[in-house]
Design a protein around this nucleic acid. Structure first.
Lengths: 217, 217
DNA sequence: AACTAATCAGGGGTAATAAG
DNA sequence: CTTATTACCCCTGATTAGTT
């Protein structure tokens, strides 16, 4: 073990704690103010019409189709994708709920045909630069898994400590989700402390891990 | 233990935090910049068909064959090469996996070095779940791995990009590497605890954890 | 309260890369 | 080259939360 020894007084410790508190406070405030809400795009009737038609054609459109739809509807590709996912889920749900008597042949098994299988020839090494949303998600995934590894419920504890006594934390995590900074925040929770050896008096030391918040100003 | 004494004030601490913040900001930015993403080419169904046929003919095509294929499929030669490599690997993998179809819990010890050489029927739907799970965990929790073994380049990158900006940061990463600080850090996220080693005398230490409420007033 | 957009947790397939 | 691993992209199914 290799520590950095820092002479520090109790007063200093209090200050540090206070500073951390202020940081959290600041975070809570800024969250309250602004981006607390999960953005929910409202799909216009016109876009909805387009999507529905596309769904008729294929319930699992390939990327190109989604791209085109996104352009056509002025929606984010991610939004289009989610719409299709939810739509499929809905259909499945409805079918299970209501329909066990008549085998609604419509949109039955055959709609399975999907998945690429075309591409206007050639478009080989294409990558979609406009797919940031999903990509961020992917980035954050391992960290989340890492979090949940140590303790099955650790993740929820970390990110959403039971609402009541720390509303701010929960909302902070939401904010992270939205802004895509999530990818780093779990690291803070898990690994980002500063191990220090604090000298309480001239010969009493304390090794401490101080948490910090990256949003601190 | 090797200690280095550093006079420090609250201002210093703030600086440290700030430096770390900047580092994370930098990281977040670079993460969010779609710049350093591994591009993934999607091979069209048509090209795939061509490749598969070629594979039937020869699983290790010579260079000029690959060249022709690349032209025909409009793919990069490198892509074609990698495709064949992955294809061979897949075939081999399937063949090996085919030998483990019934994974009853009895005779657990042996199954690891399970021979194979069975009929290459490819059901493969059932793989040893626990094996896959653990493997997956290992794979996707590099940070934990780092915790145990103290050597992970990714984490190093996380902790010390622009180490020049913040000497403290470098030291912190050293601490992480050598002390396995990760093992305690989840407490920060979960409970905002503070693991401390109290030096009762100059050479007698005691480990303790101090609770810490971030919303302390 | 219903509907549904968005998120989360997990799994599959495979292109790309690392390690040998 | 092979083998092992990682990263990307897609999905389902359950849940959360914004709108009306």
């Amino acid at each position: 073990m290799c520590f950095t020894r820092i002479p520090i007084s109790l007063q200093h410790i209090k200050s540090v704690f206070s500073a951390i508190f202020i940081t959290f406070q600041f975070l809570a405030d800024s969250d309250m103010d602004n981006s607390n809400k999960r953005p929910r795009t409202t799909i216009s009737a016109k876009s909805l019409e387009i999507l529905k038609q596309a769904y008729q054609a294929s319930s699992k459109p390939a990327r190109h189709v989604r791209e085109a739809l996104a352009r056509e509807t002025n929606l984010d590709m991610r939004v289009v994708q989610v719409w299709f996912q939810n739509r499929r889920a809905k259909e499945k749900r409805l079918k299970k709920d209501a329909g066990r008597r008549w085998g609604t042949q419509s949109a039955g098994g055959m709609s399975k045909t999907d998945s690429d299988s075309n591409s206007p020839i050639g478009s080989t090494t294409e990558q979609s630069p406009s797919y940031g949303y999903m990509e961020r998600m992917d980035v954050e995934t391992p960290h989340l898994e890492m979090t949940s590894y140590g303790n099955n419920s650790a993740q929820s504890n970390v990110l959403k400590p039971e609402a009541e006594n720390s509303i701010q934390l929960g909302e902070m995590s939401e904010n992270h989700d939205q802004s895509g900074i999530m990818s780093i925040s779990p690291m803070i929770g898990v690994g980002c402390g500063m191990m220090t050896t604090v000298a309480l008096t001239s010969d009493v030391y304390m090794d401490a891990t101080l948490g910090f918040d990256p949003y601190m100003q």
